[in-house]
Design a protein around this nucleic acid. Structure first.
Lengths: 247, 247
DNA sequence: CAGGCGTGTATTGCATACAACGGCCCCGGC
DNA sequence: GCCGGGGCCGTTGTATGCAATACACGCCTG
Protein backbone atom coordinates (compact mmCIF):
# COMPACT_ATOMS: atom_id res chain seq x y z
CA UNK A 1 0.00 0.00 0.00
CA UNK A 2 1.10 3.56 -0.53
CA UNK A 3 1.75 4.18 3.08
CA UNK A 4 3.23 7.61 3.38
CA UNK A 5 1.26 9.45 0.77
CA UNK A 6 -1.49 10.80 2.95
CA UNK A 7 -1.36 13.95 0.90
CA UNK A 8 -1.69 12.30 -2.47
CA UNK A 9 -3.84 9.33 -1.55
CA UNK A 10 -6.99 8.58 -3.45
CA UNK A 11 -8.98 9.05 -0.28
CA UNK A 12 -7.69 12.59 0.12
CA UNK A 13 -8.35 13.28 -3.50
CA UNK A 14 -11.89 11.99 -3.15
CA UNK A 15 -12.53 13.92 0.06
CA UNK A 16 -11.30 17.23 -1.30
CA UNK A 17 -13.06 16.78 -4.60
CA UNK A 18 -16.30 15.70 -3.01
CA UNK A 19 -16.27 18.58 -0.58
CA UNK A 20 -15.67 20.94 -3.45
CA UNK A 21 -18.56 19.50 -5.43
CA UNK A 22 -20.89 19.72 -2.47
CA UNK A 23 -19.95 23.27 -1.49
CA UNK A 24 -20.17 24.49 -5.06
CA UNK A 25 -23.62 23.03 -5.34
CA UNK A 26 -22.77 20.64 -8.15
CA UNK A 27 -24.69 18.05 -6.20
CA UNK A 28 -28.21 19.15 -5.55
CA UNK A 29 -28.91 19.72 -1.85
CA UNK A 30 -31.43 17.22 -0.61
CA UNK A 31 -30.59 14.95 -3.48
CA UNK A 32 -29.16 11.50 -3.24
CA UNK A 33 -25.44 11.13 -3.91
CA UNK A 34 -24.74 8.67 -6.72
CA UNK A 35 -21.64 6.68 -5.89
CA UNK A 36 -20.67 5.25 -9.25
CA UNK A 37 -21.16 8.46 -11.17
CA UNK A 38 -19.19 10.35 -8.57
CA UNK A 39 -16.40 7.82 -8.56
CA UNK A 40 -15.63 8.22 -12.22
CA UNK A 41 -16.18 11.95 -12.02
CA UNK A 42 -13.54 12.23 -9.33
CA UNK A 43 -11.30 9.68 -10.96
CA UNK A 44 -11.19 7.39 -7.98
CA UNK A 45 -12.55 4.00 -7.10
CA UNK A 46 -15.65 3.53 -5.04
CA UNK A 47 -13.69 2.38 -2.01
CA UNK A 48 -11.86 5.62 -1.21
CA UNK A 49 -14.96 7.51 -2.28
CA UNK A 50 -16.98 5.77 0.39
CA UNK A 51 -14.43 6.82 2.98
CA UNK A 52 -14.81 10.36 1.72
CA UNK A 53 -18.59 10.09 1.96
CA UNK A 54 -18.29 9.00 5.57
CA UNK A 55 -15.92 11.87 6.27
CA UNK A 56 -18.25 14.45 4.79
CA UNK A 57 -21.11 12.92 6.71
CA UNK A 58 -19.18 13.37 9.93
CA UNK A 59 -18.47 16.94 8.96
CA UNK A 60 -22.18 17.45 8.59
CA UNK A 61 -22.26 18.22 4.89
CA UNK A 62 -23.87 14.90 4.06
CA UNK A 63 -26.57 13.01 5.84
CA UNK A 64 -26.71 9.23 5.94
CA UNK A 65 -29.91 7.96 4.42
CA UNK A 66 -31.90 5.36 6.29
CA UNK A 67 -32.20 3.11 3.28
CA UNK A 68 -28.50 3.48 2.54
CA UNK A 69 -26.52 6.08 0.72
CA UNK A 70 -26.30 9.77 1.49
CA UNK A 71 -28.07 13.00 0.71
CA UNK A 72 -26.55 16.44 0.48
CA UNK A 73 -27.61 18.35 3.56
CA UNK A 74 -29.50 21.57 3.15
CA UNK A 75 -28.92 24.29 5.69
CA UNK A 76 -31.58 26.65 6.93
CA UNK A 77 -31.00 30.22 7.91
CA UNK A 78 -31.35 29.17 11.53
CA UNK A 79 -28.67 26.54 11.09
CA UNK A 80 -26.22 29.14 9.87
CA UNK A 81 -27.13 31.55 12.66
CA UNK A 82 -26.63 28.80 15.23
CA UNK A 83 -23.34 27.76 13.71
CA UNK A 84 -22.03 31.31 13.89
CA UNK A 85 -23.25 31.71 17.44
CA UNK A 86 -21.68 28.41 18.35
CA UNK A 87 -18.38 29.44 16.85
CA UNK A 88 -18.58 32.56 18.98
CA UNK A 89 -19.14 30.46 22.07
CA UNK A 90 -16.25 28.17 21.26
CA UNK A 91 -13.84 30.91 20.27
CA UNK A 92 -14.97 32.70 23.40
CA UNK A 93 -13.94 29.67 25.38
CA UNK A 94 -10.64 29.58 23.56
CA UNK A 95 -10.10 33.24 24.39
CA UNK A 96 -10.95 32.70 28.03
CA UNK A 97 -8.63 29.72 28.28
CA UNK A 98 -5.94 31.71 26.51
CA UNK A 99 -6.22 34.41 29.16
CA UNK A 100 -6.33 31.92 32.01
CA UNK A 101 -3.45 29.85 30.76
CA UNK A 102 -1.14 32.51 29.46
CA UNK A 103 2.37 31.66 30.51
CA UNK A 104 4.70 34.37 29.34
CA UNK A 105 4.02 37.38 27.20
CA UNK A 106 6.16 35.85 24.48
CA UNK A 107 3.34 33.47 23.73
CA UNK A 108 1.33 36.45 22.54
CA UNK A 109 3.75 37.24 19.73
CA UNK A 110 1.84 35.46 16.94
CA UNK A 111 -1.37 37.17 17.95
CA UNK A 112 0.34 40.54 18.25
CA UNK A 113 1.94 40.16 14.87
CA UNK A 114 -1.35 39.35 13.21
CA UNK A 115 -2.97 42.38 14.82
CA UNK A 116 -0.06 44.66 13.92
CA UNK A 117 -0.02 43.53 10.32
CA UNK A 118 -3.77 43.98 10.09
CA UNK A 119 -3.58 47.65 11.01
CA UNK A 120 -2.22 48.97 7.71
CA UNK A 121 -4.52 46.64 5.81
CA UNK A 122 -7.58 48.11 7.46
CA UNK A 123 -6.39 51.60 6.57
CA UNK A 124 -6.35 50.72 2.94
CA UNK A 125 -9.29 49.71 0.80
CA UNK A 126 -9.91 47.66 -2.31
CA UNK A 127 -10.00 44.00 -3.28
CA UNK A 128 -6.32 43.24 -2.69
CA UNK A 129 -6.54 44.67 0.81
CA UNK A 130 -9.49 42.39 1.44
CA UNK A 131 -7.54 39.34 0.36
CA UNK A 132 -4.76 40.30 2.70
CA UNK A 133 -7.27 40.88 5.49
CA UNK A 134 -8.71 37.42 5.02
CA UNK A 135 -5.28 35.81 5.23
CA UNK A 136 -4.30 37.72 8.35
CA UNK A 137 -7.70 37.20 9.91
CA UNK A 138 -7.20 33.49 9.54
CA UNK A 139 -3.77 33.75 11.15
CA UNK A 140 -5.29 35.67 14.05
CA UNK A 141 -7.94 33.05 14.69
CA UNK A 142 -5.44 30.23 14.42
CA UNK A 143 -3.16 31.95 16.88
CA UNK A 144 -6.08 32.45 19.23
CA UNK A 145 -7.00 28.78 19.17
CA UNK A 146 -3.39 27.82 19.70
CA UNK A 147 -3.19 30.02 22.79
CA UNK A 148 -6.03 28.11 24.40
CA UNK A 149 -3.65 25.15 24.61
CA UNK A 150 -6.53 22.75 24.37
CA UNK A 151 -6.64 20.13 21.61
CA UNK A 152 -10.18 19.28 22.65
CA UNK A 153 -11.41 22.83 22.14
CA UNK A 154 -9.43 23.14 18.92
CA UNK A 155 -11.06 20.03 17.53
CA UNK A 156 -14.51 21.23 18.45
CA UNK A 157 -13.91 24.55 16.73
CA UNK A 158 -12.59 22.79 13.65
CA UNK A 159 -15.79 20.78 13.50
CA UNK A 160 -18.01 23.84 13.60
CA UNK A 161 -15.91 25.85 11.20
CA UNK A 162 -16.32 23.10 8.62
CA UNK A 163 -19.97 24.04 8.28
CA UNK A 164 -20.88 26.47 5.51
CA UNK A 165 -20.91 30.15 6.50
CA UNK A 166 -19.47 29.35 9.91
CA UNK A 167 -15.82 30.01 9.18
CA UNK A 168 -14.40 33.30 10.51
CA UNK A 169 -13.86 34.67 7.03
CA UNK A 170 -16.52 32.78 5.17
CA UNK A 171 -18.53 35.92 4.65
CA UNK A 172 -15.56 38.17 4.00
CA UNK A 173 -15.05 36.93 0.46
CA UNK A 174 -18.04 38.91 -0.69
CA UNK A 175 -17.33 42.03 1.30
CA UNK A 176 -15.98 43.86 -1.69
CA UNK A 177 -19.48 43.75 -3.10
CA UNK A 178 -21.14 45.06 0.00
CA UNK A 179 -21.69 48.55 1.29
CA UNK A 180 -20.16 49.47 4.63
CA UNK A 181 -17.64 46.70 4.10
CA UNK A 182 -14.78 48.84 5.27
CA UNK A 183 -16.54 49.85 8.45
CA UNK A 184 -17.08 46.24 9.34
CA UNK A 185 -13.40 45.53 8.95
CA UNK A 186 -12.57 48.48 11.17
CA UNK A 187 -14.86 47.14 13.87
CA UNK A 188 -13.44 43.66 13.49
CA UNK A 189 -9.90 44.91 13.88
CA UNK A 190 -10.95 46.93 16.91
CA UNK A 191 -12.26 43.72 18.44
CA UNK A 192 -9.05 41.90 17.56
CA UNK A 193 -7.09 44.47 19.48
CA UNK A 194 -9.45 44.41 22.43
CA UNK A 195 -9.26 40.64 22.49
CA UNK A 196 -5.49 40.72 22.50
CA UNK A 197 -5.55 43.24 25.31
CA UNK A 198 -7.96 41.22 27.42
CA UNK A 199 -5.90 38.07 27.02
CA UNK A 200 -2.68 39.91 27.80
CA UNK A 201 -4.24 41.28 30.97
CA UNK A 202 -5.55 37.89 31.98
CA UNK A 203 -9.13 39.02 31.79
CA UNK A 204 -10.75 35.75 30.80
CA UNK A 205 -14.39 36.73 31.03
CA UNK A 206 -13.88 39.92 29.04
CA UNK A 207 -11.94 38.01 26.41
CA UNK A 208 -14.74 35.49 26.18
CA UNK A 209 -17.41 38.13 25.67
CA UNK A 210 -15.38 39.99 23.07
CA UNK A 211 -14.84 36.82 21.08
CA UNK A 212 -18.56 36.08 21.17
CA UNK A 213 -19.40 39.56 20.00
CA UNK A 214 -16.74 39.26 17.34
CA UNK A 215 -18.50 36.24 15.93
CA UNK A 216 -21.81 38.08 16.00
CA UNK A 217 -20.25 40.53 13.59
CA UNK A 218 -20.37 37.67 11.11
CA UNK A 219 -24.02 37.20 11.90
CA UNK A 220 -24.74 40.79 10.98
CA UNK A 221 -22.86 40.28 7.74
CA UNK A 222 -24.97 37.25 7.06
CA UNK A 223 -28.11 39.32 6.64
CA UNK A 224 -26.29 41.74 4.36
CA UNK A 225 -24.93 38.93 2.22
CA UNK A 226 -28.28 37.18 2.04
CA UNK A 227 -29.85 40.36 0.73
CA UNK A 228 -27.40 40.63 -2.14
CA UNK A 229 -27.58 37.99 -4.82
CA UNK A 230 -24.09 38.60 -6.18
CA UNK A 231 -22.51 38.72 -2.76
CA UNK A 232 -24.17 35.48 -1.78
CA UNK A 233 -22.95 33.77 -4.91
CA UNK A 234 -19.39 34.59 -3.89
CA UNK A 235 -19.73 32.76 -0.58
CA UNK A 236 -18.49 29.22 -0.49
CA UNK A 237 -21.29 26.79 0.27
CA UNK A 238 -24.06 29.19 -0.71
CA UNK A 239 -25.90 26.58 -2.80
CA UNK A 240 -26.47 24.56 0.36
CA UNK A 241 -28.80 27.19 1.77
CA UNK A 242 -32.40 26.09 1.73
CA UNK A 243 -34.84 28.31 -0.13
CA UNK A 244 -32.47 30.98 -1.30
CA UNK A 245 -35.43 32.73 -2.77
CA UNK A 246 -34.50 36.39 -2.85
CA UNK A 247 -30.89 35.83 -3.77
CA UNK B 1 -26.72 -4.19 -1.46
CA UNK B 2 -28.38 -4.51 1.91
CA UNK B 3 -29.82 -1.08 1.77
CA UNK B 4 -32.07 -0.70 4.74
CA UNK B 5 -30.16 -2.56 7.38
CA UNK B 6 -28.37 0.38 8.90
CA UNK B 7 -28.93 -1.17 12.27
CA UNK B 8 -27.56 -4.57 11.44
CA UNK B 9 -24.98 -3.63 8.85
CA UNK B 10 -21.44 -4.86 9.08
CA UNK B 11 -20.26 -1.28 9.37
CA UNK B 12 -22.41 -0.73 12.46
CA UNK B 13 -21.24 -3.98 13.91
CA UNK B 14 -17.64 -3.00 13.31
CA UNK B 15 -18.10 0.49 14.72
CA UNK B 16 -19.80 -0.65 17.92
CA UNK B 17 -17.37 -3.50 18.41
CA UNK B 18 -14.34 -1.38 17.73
CA UNK B 19 -15.50 1.36 20.09
CA UNK B 20 -16.08 -1.24 22.75
CA UNK B 21 -12.61 -2.70 22.28
CA UNK B 22 -11.00 0.72 22.43
CA UNK B 23 -12.89 1.92 25.48
CA UNK B 24 -12.29 -1.31 27.34
CA UNK B 25 -8.60 -1.01 26.67
CA UNK B 26 -8.34 -4.23 24.69
CA UNK B 27 -6.29 -2.27 22.22
CA UNK B 28 -3.29 -0.70 23.84
CA UNK B 29 -3.45 3.10 23.87
CA UNK B 30 -0.72 4.56 21.73
CA UNK B 31 -0.45 1.29 19.89
CA UNK B 32 -1.06 0.76 16.24
CA UNK B 33 -4.38 -0.77 15.27
CA UNK B 34 -3.92 -3.96 13.28
CA UNK B 35 -6.57 -4.13 10.59
CA UNK B 36 -6.52 -7.77 9.63
CA UNK B 37 -6.45 -9.11 13.16
CA UNK B 38 -9.26 -6.78 14.13
CA UNK B 39 -11.33 -7.72 11.13
CA UNK B 40 -11.46 -11.38 12.02
CA UNK B 41 -11.83 -10.59 15.70
CA UNK B 42 -14.92 -8.54 14.97
CA UNK B 43 -16.14 -10.96 12.36
CA UNK B 44 -16.26 -8.43 9.58
CA UNK B 45 -14.33 -7.71 6.45
CA UNK B 46 -11.68 -5.05 6.25
CA UNK B 47 -13.91 -2.78 4.17
CA UNK B 48 -16.55 -2.00 6.82
CA UNK B 49 -13.82 -2.05 9.44
CA UNK B 50 -12.03 0.77 7.69
CA UNK B 51 -15.22 2.80 7.73
CA UNK B 52 -15.43 2.15 11.45
CA UNK B 53 -11.82 3.21 11.88
CA UNK B 54 -12.55 6.48 10.13
CA UNK B 55 -15.60 6.98 12.32
CA UNK B 56 -13.68 6.42 15.52
CA UNK B 57 -10.98 8.72 14.26
CA UNK B 58 -13.54 11.46 13.77
CA UNK B 59 -14.84 10.83 17.24
CA UNK B 60 -11.34 11.36 18.50
CA UNK B 61 -10.74 7.92 19.93
CA UNK B 62 -8.29 7.03 17.18
CA UNK B 63 -5.65 9.12 15.55
CA UNK B 64 -4.69 8.76 11.91
CA UNK B 65 -1.03 7.91 11.57
CA UNK B 66 1.09 9.83 9.10
CA UNK B 67 2.46 6.72 7.50
CA UNK B 68 -0.97 5.17 7.32
CA UNK B 69 -3.10 3.28 9.77
CA UNK B 70 -4.32 4.45 13.15
CA UNK B 71 -3.22 4.52 16.75
CA UNK B 72 -5.41 4.38 19.81
CA UNK B 73 -5.42 7.84 21.32
CA UNK B 74 -4.24 8.30 24.86
CA UNK B 75 -5.90 11.00 26.91
CA UNK B 76 -4.12 13.11 29.45
CA UNK B 77 -5.65 14.42 32.60
CA UNK B 78 -5.76 17.84 30.97
CA UNK B 79 -7.65 16.44 28.01
CA UNK B 80 -10.34 15.10 30.28
CA UNK B 81 -10.55 18.34 32.23
CA UNK B 82 -10.88 20.29 29.02
CA UNK B 83 -13.51 17.95 27.67
CA UNK B 84 -15.59 18.35 30.81
CA UNK B 85 -15.17 22.11 30.76
CA UNK B 86 -16.10 22.14 27.10
CA UNK B 87 -19.21 20.11 27.78
CA UNK B 88 -20.11 22.67 30.40
CA UNK B 89 -19.69 25.46 27.90
CA UNK B 90 -21.80 23.69 25.30
CA UNK B 91 -24.53 22.62 27.68
CA UNK B 92 -24.42 26.15 29.03
CA UNK B 93 -25.11 27.38 25.53
CA UNK B 94 -27.90 24.86 25.18
CA UNK B 95 -29.39 26.09 28.45
CA UNK B 96 -29.14 29.72 27.39
CA UNK B 97 -30.74 29.01 24.05
CA UNK B 98 -33.43 27.00 25.78
CA UNK B 99 -34.24 30.01 27.94
CA UNK B 100 -34.12 32.42 25.02
CA UNK B 101 -36.20 30.27 22.71
CA UNK B 102 -38.75 28.89 25.10
CA UNK B 103 -42.13 29.00 23.44
CA UNK B 104 -44.74 27.77 25.85
CA UNK B 105 -44.37 26.30 29.29
CA UNK B 106 -45.55 22.98 27.91
CA UNK B 107 -42.18 22.53 26.30
CA UNK B 108 -40.70 22.26 29.77
CA UNK B 109 -42.67 19.13 30.62
CA UNK B 110 -39.92 16.62 29.80
CA UNK B 111 -37.42 18.55 31.86
CA UNK B 112 -39.86 18.96 34.72
CA UNK B 113 -40.68 15.29 34.71
CA UNK B 114 -37.04 14.30 34.86
CA UNK B 115 -36.45 16.65 37.77
CA UNK B 116 -39.58 15.50 39.58
CA UNK B 117 -38.69 11.84 39.19
CA UNK B 118 -35.17 12.51 40.36
CA UNK B 119 -36.34 13.92 43.68
CA UNK B 120 -37.33 10.63 45.32
CA UNK B 121 -34.24 8.96 43.86
CA UNK B 122 -31.96 11.45 45.54
CA UNK B 123 -33.73 10.85 48.84
CA UNK B 124 -32.87 7.20 48.70
CA UNK B 125 -29.44 5.64 48.65
CA UNK B 126 -27.83 2.48 47.39
CA UNK B 127 -26.74 1.02 44.06
CA UNK B 128 -30.20 0.67 42.53
CA UNK B 129 -30.95 4.31 43.29
CA UNK B 130 -27.73 5.20 41.53
CA UNK B 131 -28.74 3.28 38.43
CA UNK B 132 -32.04 5.09 38.39
CA UNK B 133 -30.27 8.40 38.88
CA UNK B 134 -28.04 7.74 35.89
CA UNK B 135 -31.00 6.96 33.68
CA UNK B 136 -32.95 10.03 34.74
CA UNK B 137 -29.86 12.20 34.56
CA UNK B 138 -29.46 11.18 30.97
CA UNK B 139 -33.09 12.02 30.30
CA UNK B 140 -32.59 15.43 31.87
CA UNK B 141 -29.61 16.25 29.72
CA UNK B 142 -31.32 15.02 26.59
CA UNK B 143 -34.34 17.15 27.34
CA UNK B 144 -32.09 20.13 27.91
CA UNK B 145 -30.39 19.72 24.56
CA UNK B 146 -33.74 19.29 22.87
CA UNK B 147 -34.99 22.54 24.37
CA UNK B 148 -32.15 24.45 22.73
CA UNK B 149 -33.81 23.68 19.40
CA UNK B 150 -30.47 23.72 17.67
CA UNK B 151 -29.27 20.72 15.69
CA UNK B 152 -25.89 22.37 15.34
CA UNK B 153 -25.40 22.69 19.08
CA UNK B 154 -26.76 19.19 19.62
CA UNK B 155 -24.25 17.76 17.18
CA UNK B 156 -21.40 19.60 18.82
CA UNK B 157 -22.38 18.29 22.23
CA UNK B 158 -22.67 14.78 20.87
CA UNK B 159 -19.13 15.05 19.57
CA UNK B 160 -17.70 16.07 22.92
CA UNK B 161 -19.70 13.59 24.92
CA UNK B 162 -18.22 10.81 22.83
CA UNK B 163 -14.88 11.43 24.49
CA UNK B 164 -14.04 9.32 27.53
CA UNK B 165 -15.02 10.79 30.88
CA UNK B 166 -16.86 13.66 29.20
CA UNK B 167 -20.36 12.23 29.30
CA UNK B 168 -22.70 13.68 31.94
CA UNK B 169 -22.88 10.42 33.82
CA UNK B 170 -19.56 8.92 32.85
CA UNK B 171 -18.25 9.33 36.35
CA UNK B 172 -21.46 8.37 38.09
CA UNK B 173 -21.01 4.68 37.48
CA UNK B 174 -18.40 4.52 40.14
CA UNK B 175 -20.13 6.73 42.65
CA UNK B 176 -21.26 3.84 44.73
CA UNK B 177 -17.63 3.24 45.54
CA UNK B 178 -16.90 6.79 46.52
CA UNK B 179 -17.40 8.68 49.73
CA UNK B 180 -19.68 11.69 49.71
CA UNK B 181 -21.39 10.21 46.68
CA UNK B 182 -24.81 11.03 48.01
CA UNK B 183 -23.94 14.64 48.70
CA UNK B 184 -22.79 15.06 45.13
CA UNK B 185 -26.09 13.77 43.84
CA UNK B 186 -27.94 16.17 46.10
CA UNK B 187 -25.96 19.08 44.74
CA UNK B 188 -26.48 17.88 41.18
CA UNK B 189 -30.22 17.66 41.66
CA UNK B 190 -30.23 21.11 43.20
CA UNK B 191 -28.54 22.40 40.08
CA UNK B 192 -31.05 20.57 37.90
CA UNK B 193 -33.85 22.37 39.64
CA UNK B 194 -32.12 25.73 39.47
CA UNK B 195 -31.48 25.18 35.78
CA UNK B 196 -35.10 24.37 35.16
CA UNK B 197 -36.15 27.45 37.06
CA UNK B 198 -33.80 29.72 35.17
CA UNK B 199 -34.98 28.42 31.82
CA UNK B 200 -38.62 28.72 32.85
CA UNK B 201 -38.02 32.33 33.87
CA UNK B 202 -36.20 33.10 30.64
CA UNK B 203 -32.97 33.88 32.44
CA UNK B 204 -30.53 32.80 29.78
CA UNK B 205 -27.32 33.97 31.36
CA UNK B 206 -28.15 32.42 34.70
CA UNK B 207 -29.07 29.16 33.00
CA UNK B 208 -25.78 29.18 31.15
CA UNK B 209 -23.73 29.68 34.28
CA UNK B 210 -25.59 27.00 36.18
CA UNK B 211 -25.03 24.50 33.41
CA UNK B 212 -21.33 25.29 33.39
CA UNK B 213 -21.08 24.86 37.11
CA UNK B 214 -23.07 21.67 36.84
CA UNK B 215 -20.45 20.26 34.52
CA UNK B 216 -17.70 21.33 36.91
CA UNK B 217 -19.28 19.02 39.42
CA UNK B 218 -18.07 16.24 37.18
CA UNK B 219 -14.63 17.72 37.24
CA UNK B 220 -14.56 17.52 41.02
CA UNK B 221 -15.65 13.93 40.78
CA UNK B 222 -12.82 13.28 38.39
CA UNK B 223 -10.21 13.85 41.05
CA UNK B 224 -12.06 11.61 43.45
CA UNK B 225 -12.33 8.84 40.90
CA UNK B 226 -8.71 9.14 39.88
CA UNK B 227 -7.67 8.69 43.48
CA UNK B 228 -9.55 5.42 43.81
CA UNK B 229 -8.29 2.49 41.79
CA UNK B 230 -11.50 0.48 41.96
CA UNK B 231 -13.67 3.46 41.15
CA UNK B 232 -11.54 4.29 38.16
CA UNK B 233 -11.76 0.77 36.86
CA UNK B 234 -15.54 1.09 36.79
CA UNK B 235 -15.42 4.07 34.47
CA UNK B 236 -15.83 3.40 30.80
CA UNK B 237 -12.75 4.41 28.86
CA UNK B 238 -10.46 4.41 31.86
CA UNK B 239 -7.71 2.44 30.09
CA UNK B 240 -7.29 5.32 27.68
CA UNK B 241 -5.94 7.57 30.39
CA UNK B 242 -2.23 8.17 30.04
CA UNK B 243 -0.04 7.27 32.99
CA UNK B 244 -2.67 6.04 35.37
CA UNK B 245 0.06 5.53 37.89
CA UNK B 246 -1.66 5.65 41.25
CA UNK B 247 -4.84 3.96 40.07
C1' DC C 1 -60.72 2.46 -12.40
C1' DA C 2 -58.00 1.79 -8.35
C1' DG C 3 -55.16 -0.78 -5.44
C1' DG C 4 -52.01 -4.36 -4.52
C1' DC C 5 -48.61 -7.59 -5.74
C1' DG C 6 -44.78 -9.32 -8.35
C1' DT C 7 -40.82 -8.73 -11.07
C1' DG C 8 -36.97 -6.05 -12.88
C1' DT C 9 -33.40 -2.89 -12.29
C1' DA C 10 -30.33 0.23 -10.35
C1' DT C 11 -27.69 1.10 -6.48
C1' DT C 12 -25.25 0.25 -2.45
C1' DG C 13 -22.77 -2.76 0.94
C1' DC C 14 -19.37 -6.14 1.44
C1' DA C 15 -15.65 -9.33 0.53
C1' DT C 16 -11.59 -10.42 -1.65
C1' DA C 17 -7.64 -9.94 -4.58
C1' DC C 18 -3.87 -7.06 -5.84
C1' DA C 19 -0.37 -3.59 -5.54
C1' DA C 20 2.71 -0.45 -3.49
C1' DC C 21 5.34 1.28 0.16
C1' DG C 22 7.97 1.26 4.59
C1' DG C 23 10.52 -1.28 7.93
C1' DC C 24 13.58 -4.95 9.17
C1' DC C 25 17.08 -8.16 8.76
C1' DC C 26 20.95 -10.03 6.74
C1' DC C 27 24.94 -9.83 4.17
C1' DG C 28 28.81 -7.68 2.25
C1' DG C 29 32.28 -4.27 2.09
C1' DC C 30 35.17 -0.88 4.15
C1' DG D 1 33.41 -3.96 14.07
C1' DC D 2 30.50 -0.76 11.95
C1' DC D 3 28.08 1.22 8.29
C1' DG D 4 25.53 0.86 4.07
C1' DG D 5 22.77 -1.43 0.63
C1' DG D 6 19.56 -4.76 -1.01
C1' DG D 7 15.94 -7.99 -0.62
C1' DC D 8 12.10 -9.91 1.94
C1' DC D 9 7.93 -9.35 4.52
C1' DG D 10 4.17 -7.24 6.77
C1' DT D 11 0.86 -3.86 6.41
C1' DT D 12 -2.29 -0.79 4.42
C1' DG D 13 -4.52 1.48 0.37
C1' DT D 14 -7.12 0.60 -3.77
C1' DA D 15 -9.80 -1.67 -7.24
C1' DT D 16 -13.17 -4.73 -8.72
C1' DG D 17 -16.67 -8.32 -8.58
C1' DC D 18 -20.63 -10.15 -6.35
C1' DA D 19 -24.79 -10.24 -3.78
C1' DA D 20 -28.73 -8.35 -1.65
C1' DT D 21 -32.25 -5.04 -1.14
C1' DA D 22 -35.41 -1.19 -2.03
C1' DC D 23 -37.73 1.32 -5.29
C1' DA D 24 -40.40 1.65 -9.48
C1' DC D 25 -43.12 0.16 -12.99
C1' DG D 26 -46.44 -2.66 -14.95
C1' DC D 27 -49.81 -6.09 -14.73
C1' DC D 28 -53.49 -8.37 -12.80
C1' DT D 29 -57.53 -8.54 -10.06
C1' DG D 30 -61.48 -6.94 -7.50
Amino acid sequence: MPRGNTASSQTTKATLGLRELVLEGELAPGGRVPEVELAERLGVSRTPLRIALATLAHEGLLEPLAGGGFVVRAFTHDDVVDAIELRGVLEGTAARLAAERLGSRRELVPLEEAVAELDPVVDRTGPEALVRFVALNERFHEALVALAKSPVVARSIANVVALPFASPNALLSSHALLPRSHEILVVAQHQHRALLEAIADGHGTRAEEIAREHARLARRNLDLVLADRDALAAVRGAPLLRSVAGG
